[in-house]
């Protein structure tokens, strides 16, 4: 695997709100690594994710470069950036079953979709859950489905927006291990924003503190 070709590079990224500087980041995240951005609320860490993913509100202004390998992602619309998102809410679509949610993540032309879904569910200990209504799942189960939906979509990088903050302590440990393990295994560069030091420790990568 060529590290340089698949790294997520933030080059002299700075974001302003109404002319006031909010943050400045300059970093490279190698495939399989997790860069943690820490800071209290209002420090602009979620804004950084919105900028990278392509959802920055027009009230903010931003400069700098974001590259995935050699691709300049800023010039692409959000859906072509290959940047997957994981929020604190799992956001499973209520009109689709668990299997339907995973299928939604799979690329159009992938083969053996059902087998892929079954395997993904098995990986997170939810084998046979395809037909279930997401609303009947526990919070932890929903979070795992959301993670697998993300991974099945074959992103080139992943952004995590306080993904564990809504889970209880025991579950949080388990999910951290699962998420970071899966990301490492998939060889994806990841950016985590959080205010929880334990998240940063578990991520094991470099840490940038904001605010």
């Amino acid at each position: 695997m060529n590290n340089a070709a698949n790294a997520l590079t933030l080059e002299q990224v700075s974001i302003h709100l109404a002319g006031r500087p909010l943050l400045h980041v300059d970093a490279t995240v190698a495939p399989g690594d997790v860069l943690t951005v820490m800071g209290p609320s209002g420090s602009g860490k979620s804004t950084l994710l919105a900028f990278i993913a392509g959802f920055l509100q027009s009230t903010f202004t931003a400069q700098g470069q974001v590259r995935l390998g050699d691709t300049d992602v800023l010039s692409l619309p959000a859906e072509q950036r290959g940047v997957g998102l994981l929020f604190q809410d799992p956001l499973l679509f209520p009109h689709l079953s668990v299997g339907g949610n995973l299928r939604f993540g799979l690329p159009h032309r992938s083969s053996q979709k059902s087998a892929q879904i079954a395997k993904a569910l098995e990986q997170v200990g939810l084998a046979g859950f395809e037909a279930r209504d997401p609303a009947t799942l526990s919070g932890g189960q929903q979070a795992r489905v959301a993670l697998m939906r993300l991974l099945l979509s074959q992103p080139r990088a992943v952004l995590l927006d306080e993904p564990f903050s809504k889970l209880d302590t025991a579950l949080r440990q388990e999910m951290r291990a699962l998420v970071f393990g899966q990301l490492r295994e998939a060889g994806l560069p990841a950016l985590l924003v959080t205010h929880d030091e334990a998240d940063a420790t578990a991520a094991g990568g470099p840490i940038i503190a904001l605010g």
Binding site: A78, E79, S153
Partner: peptide, 28 residues
């Protein structure tokens, strides 16, 4: 319907905006 968030998610999964809306917001 948290339409905004659903859309972001669908687009981060690679869906074009209009198609994303039709697939994740309309059914609800």
């Amino acid at each position: 319907l948290q339409a905004e968030q659903r859309l972001r998610l669908a687009r981060s999964l690679g869906y074009s905006p209009t198609l994303a809306w039709l697939k994740v917001v309309l059914p609800s």
